[in-house]
């Protein structure tokens, strides 16, 4: 465990807290992509199947359960709970996620570590996580202006990815047996998707002002 990895995980947890606060306290899921949240739920449920047979640390196992529970709770609230379910707009949040899930499933079957069923599912979850933010980014793009909490949510997720990238670099140079090409490739793609958002986030938050983020 290094500081980048730890801060990355904390920033990931922070993103869940921000989103849960926004939809429970604000009673609205406006601006939040249920599609993206459903993709994250699929990602965590498939990747953490190994909760039942792999144990590396209490920290890991605990966070795996937290991630599955938080993403499920978010999907449940937006899809089924009043009044939040009436604030979700399916016409705006209509990214065709089958075009993300399908290719990721094929990639998982073809490109994985050792051709076992779990390695295929695991690789699928890595590929899907890389693109899971796309419906959210498209939704923000359509709206043009991003509410503060929503922008903090996306920023926390972006920070998590950036910190994981630094964690990989750190581990590569400090550990003898540390090589994971699939994760590095997908993670770099994923981090890249946030670059444009971060530019606009920085533009609207600099100078201590808390203006909403405007996207062109």
């Amino acid at each position: 465990m290094n500081i980048f990895r730890f801060l990355g995980d904390m920033s990931h947890i922070l993103s869940f807290v921000i989103l849960l606060l926004k939809i429970t306290q604000g009673k609205s899921a406006a601006g939040i992509s249920l599609r993206t949240q459903e993709l994250y739920m699929i990602v965590f449920c498939s990747r953490y199947l190994d909760l039942f047979w792999n144990f590396s640390s209490l920290y890991n196992s605990f966070l795996k359960v937290v991630f599955i529970a938080c993403s499920s709770a978010i999907v449940y609230i937006i899809r089924f709970k009043s009044p939040q379910k009436d604030t979700w707009n399916p016409e705006l949040d209509n990214f065709p996620i089958q075009y993300l899930i399908g290719p990721c499933a094929v990639a998982g079957l073809l490109i994985n570590q050792d051709w076992t069923p779990f390695e295929m599912i695991w690789a699928f979850s890595i590929y899907l996580e890389a693109v899971a933010i796309l419906p959210q980014l498209f939704l923000l793009q359509k709206q043009g202006e991003v509410e503060n909490l929503t922008s903090h949510y996306v920023a926390a997720l972006g920070a998590y990815r950036g910190l994981y990238l630094m964690n990989w670099v750190y581990r590569y140079f400090t550990e003898d047996d540390y090589l994971q090409r699939i994760v590095w490739f997908a993670g770099t793609v994923q981090t890249g998707l946030y670059i444009d958002f971060f530019y606009h986030y920085y533009q609207s938050k600099r100078g201590g002002l808390s203006r909403p983020v405007k996207l062109p």
Binding site: R5, H12, N54, S56, S57, Q113, R171, Y178, L179
Partner: peptide, 10 residues
């Protein structure tokens, strides 16, 4: 030569 890492990340 480096070997593949185990699954100790989230």
């Amino acid at each position: 030569k480096k070997k593949k890492a185990g699954k100790d990340e989230l």
